[in-house]
Design a protein around this nucleic acid. Sequence first.
DNA 1: GAGTTTGAAACT
DNA 2: CAGTTTCAAACTC
Length: 591
Amino acid sequence: MEEGEGGESGSKNVVPPEFVVAVSPTAAAATTAWSDAPAKKIVRQLDFNTMTEQSKPPQQLLQQMTVMTQKPVAGSPLPPPQPMIGLQHSSVRVGKPESPKPKSRPNFDMKEGTPKKQKQCNCKHSKCLKLYCECFASGIYCDGCNCVNCFNNVDNEAARREAVEATLERNPNAFRPKIASSPQGARDSREETGEGLVLIKHNKGCHCKKSGCLKKYCECFQANVLCSENCRCMDCKNFEGSEERQALFHGDQNNNTYIQQAANAAITGAIGSYGYSSPPVSKKRKGQELFLWPTSKDPSISKSGQQVNHVKGPAAASSSLSPVPNARVANATLGQSPQKLKYRSLLADIVQPHHLKELCSVLVLVSGQAAKTLADQKSSAEKRTEDQAETSLASSTQEQLPSQKDVDVEKAMDDDCSSANQTDKISPSNSCSDGADVPKGRPMSPGTLALMCDEQDTMFMRASSPIGPMNHACNTSSQFPSGQGVTEVYGEQERIVLTQFRDFLNRVITMGEINETKCSSLARSELENQKHLINKETGNSSTDIVHQQEATSNGEPKTVVPPMATTSTPVVPGDAVTENGETKPEMEKEL
DNA sequence: GAGTTTGAAACT
DNA sequence: CAGTTTCAAACTC
């Protein structure tokens, strides 16, 4: 006990300027969910996300640390090693700077957003020189902590530096932010904004087994980020759309008890019931993975906001009982039990990438046809009319063409849509473009060019029949003296293209509405069934299905639809949607 | 505040 | 890399 009580370590864990400076909206957002989120923590997280530390090589970090360490500012507490700035553990484990509470007491008070006093560690055996120590992990000196035999102070700089080196040796990223933003992460959590979520995710991911990732044991939860594909947790409930998670956030955020109870209920429901009873049955998404076995790191199954937590046990069978909104993807793919809650967009599986591609192709086609039609009509008009009469006729024709073209276009569109598979065939064959000529003959209209963003489409255009409408369009354009003629064609093309696009969007919307309707009715029927079952078994006549189901948290299959789904609230991406095997095909056909 | 639980870090 | 141990925070009573 050279240092005696850690708290005595004279060093002060002064928060480095960087910590304070880097506050950014992003960071703030990341922690907003925690009403009590200590400002410092926020700052720190921000730093993690914004600091350049992350991009620095470990060696550099070490150097920085070392330098800082070796040259303490005379007369003043040594500034914590730089790495700290970006150090992440901190972000995960409620860093010191975060909670003021002296001892282990839940920092969970979800109230008062006032920054609290710095957190103090209570290390006893690590000398505060291992990552177990929050201070050390955060890159700050212990100050006023309750630690014992603390070496994380100025007086033990040498030892500290060695520890840092050792730590970096083990893990070069040890002091880097665990929580970081990423395109994926951003996408994953963007929908969580309502809950103050996050554009970030845990780099390493958590490995929780019993907490359901809804307690601060979970680094992701603690950092207020959703579990991601990086996680290997079980029974994870910390994913976008999680009923349990929503309960935590939507409840009275100032009510600590409520939150904890909600978390406990959630965990109990998952773990108590199916989770650990008997063989570690699959939990949540993991359960589903049972079927997908080699799952673990399959990115396609990732939890984009939805995780994939891998199930390692054989209890596949029980997965159907899991209340957890299992892997949406897995379910979708496997067509698993509709009993599960799923959190997916109403348009999920409806609009596929190939649909967009096809849409582009169709629009290009339509555009070409429009040009052709317009050109033909115009040229014929020119032949038939003379002088002024011709001029006036031409203008009037312009206005009528649309409807005519729309019909043709619509037809083409319908054909195409009625059988998506035909698109590829149709396009090339019917097609309109003489790709090779297009660029030369005349510039494509803005609308068309915009649609040709897809490389394949471009190629397809070039490869298509030389007799296509586009070809005509090109010729046509050449017929126009350049000015107005071309402009008109462009305008017309754009109009038609936009019209088609609008129609497409309307269809998509319709699909979504249909899906919503189906889901709602399905949910209702499910609830009815559950209700009957419950009444049968318990004799309880209560009509409050939701309550009943929640009351049966012990092992009973959980409610099929989240409470909100039973309301008139339109299903939003976050609502549970039961996979409907019949729906998808229809939708696809429609599209 | 003591004791238990939990999961990351460290170790084998 | 998987399994085990150590550790300290989170949590419960």
